[in-house]
Design a protein around this nucleic acid. Structure first.
Lengths: 333, 333
DNA sequence: CTGAAAGCGCTTACAG
DNA sequence: CTGAAAGCGCTTACAG
């Protein structure tokens, strides 16, 4: 068994109180005692138990994170920066990865509560009622990152999806496109889903462009979904000259579909993505995309959560800046 | 503050012992008492403190994981399956993401020790001496996943890199290639780095093929590295007709470089990758790759670690099966 | 400056 | 079947 504070005290010939004091860097310990204690700690290879400390301090330095899918470069990047910022602030992460297994989310929220995490970060918004209720009475600071559910009880760290989609569509219009298709994500998502679609519609409307039959389709943000929706679109009716996809993953799916059908991007069809994930630089042609400040998002999420933990009560959303990054997948016509 | 067991006991009019008993599903509690306790728990929204439990049970159900970079699809997939299997076994994960910050690894190992995690999983092998020494005396079951350091003190979950590389190279030879280049990872890696290189060399040797000047280069497994090494190779000397990259990321980098130089894959140059990550299906042409059983790896890692935690002492490596998956990036000549 | 004692929220012999 | 008491490994008033 690992040595405990009592072992250190005995070895150093002092009380556990004194050991505790040098452990916690208190003044008022004579230098020679301090030296003896430090020596004993070293020799024993003693490390204080975080468990015991948490119990008495009523502070766990733990944050629970719920990620839809760590395998997605978008979430992984946010998570990576959440971890980084948390670590800088001496917080550790318990990570829950819910790959379409909503039950796991409920289970993990239970775990979070049992572990007395000080705060919770949620990166998806398909909350069912059971979960919503559980969160309500959990009474632990909670923040949504990169998503914003209907529920106004919690803050979010997001971008202005509608404005970003408006600009992305406007960019294509500016290039001379008129037949612009939209490949969307889940419309149950209030911000990402509905916001991006609304921005697209608004831009088309403001420029007096009618949307053609079959040029708006919805899937689930993933590559395969983008591929399938694009394939459907190729199935009948007139092909669009440009496609705005609600995620980079979908955009890549669409590009691959076009490629497999012998169509060239951007010569035959321009494609613009959304997110600014690492994928944009990996594919050929490199993907023009409406970039979210993914790194910053992780950092701001922790900062806001720590504010909440510290007792701040404001529930304002943090709305970060988006940015169009032009690469090689769009062309003027 | 969250309600505690005492609150439940008072509300139900029983002793804390009895509450504890129904919490832990013990028999020998009369039905009516049990009912009263359950009611009180419900009404209070009581959840037992994992902290307090851990302290007395001397069991934390925590596993520490050190990942080089969650942003990489390869590690993310392993991690995802580690999490899944751990969760099924009622274990939770503390995740450390060391993006080239070795200091963080040391810091996290400390945290792991403080938190009294029951086991540690390490997914990289660049251990410096300080860390090696710390691990040695940490006295917590530890296992390496997807890597195998020199150190024979710990078990690993890996594949036979040498055999896999031998087969991958053999596949290219079988297609009629002779000028086959190798783009390797870090040669300090005993298995992945050295093993894959050795397998390549051996296959070339066994088939009586001389390796050409400049056709073997080493980088760091990442896309950019693959791009740069390929660019170097294009700089002078005769171009290879096929390239074996030690990771899919590098292979994609190489493909992108060739693309940017106006060369066609596989018509001008064949490319084969290693790992079988999600990237293989995302790029065009789809990447032929020597696949590691990435999902299985996560699962086996937890299973072996749990064995270790349960007191099993064997340090045998688990060597999983690799598998060549042919896609569109290689062509007979 | 130092230490004995109480207490954090639980579980587990022990006694009844 | 049930409960009072000790103990898990620490920290923190309190007293000296």
């Amino acid at each position: 068994m690992a040595p405990k504070i009592k072992d250190v005290a005995q070895k150093a010939g002092v009380s556990v109180t004194t050991v505790s004091r040098v452990l916690n860097g208190e003044k008022y310990v004579k230098d020679d005692l301090k030296a003896r204690v430090k020596k004993a700690i070293d020799e024993l290879g003693y490390t204080p138990s975080h468990i015991a400390r948490s119990l008495v301090r009523k502070k766990t330095n733990l944050i629970g994170v719920i990620v839809p899918d760590v395998t997605s470069s978008f979430y992984a990047t946010i998570l990576s920066n959440i971890e980084k910022t948390a670590s800088l602030n001496d917080y550790n992460l318990i990570v829950c990865n819910i790959i379409e297994d909503i039950d796991k989310e409920y289970k993990y929220l239970q775990v979070f509560k049992e572990m007395r995490v000080e705060g919770v970060i949620v990166m998806h918004e398909k909350l069912n009622d059971e979960i919503r209720e559980f969160i309500d009475k959990m009474d632990i600071p909670l923040i949504f990152s990169s998503v914003k559910p209907n529920d106004q009880k919690f803050g979010s760290v997001i971008i202005d999806d509608r404005a970003a989609a408006y600009e992305a569509t406007g960019y294509l219009i500016g290039l001379g496109h008129r037949r612009i298709a939209f490949i969307g994500g889940d419309m149950r998502d209030v911000t990402s889903g509905q916001g991006r679609y609304a921005g697209y519609m608004q831009a088309m409307h403001d420029n007096g462009i009618a949307i053609e039959q079959g040029h708006v389709r919805f899937g689930d943000y993933k590559t395969q979904s983008g591929y399938e929706l694009m394939a459907d679109m190729c199935g009948g009716g007139e092909l669009p000259t440009a496609v705005f996809a609600a995620s980079d993953d979908m955009a890549v799916g669409a590009m691959n579909c076009l490629h497999d059908k012998g169509l060239k991007v951007p010569e035959d069809v321009s494609v613009i993505g959304f997110d600014g994930s690492q994928l944009t630089e990996l594919v050929r042609p490199r993907l023009t995309s409406m970039e979210q400040p993914i790194r910053e998002m992780g950092q701001v999420t922790i900062e806001k959560l720590l504010d909440l933990i510290a007792g701040q009560t404001s529930r304002e959303d943090a709305v970060l800046r988006h940015r169009l990054v032009v690469r090689d997948s769009c062309k003027a016509r």
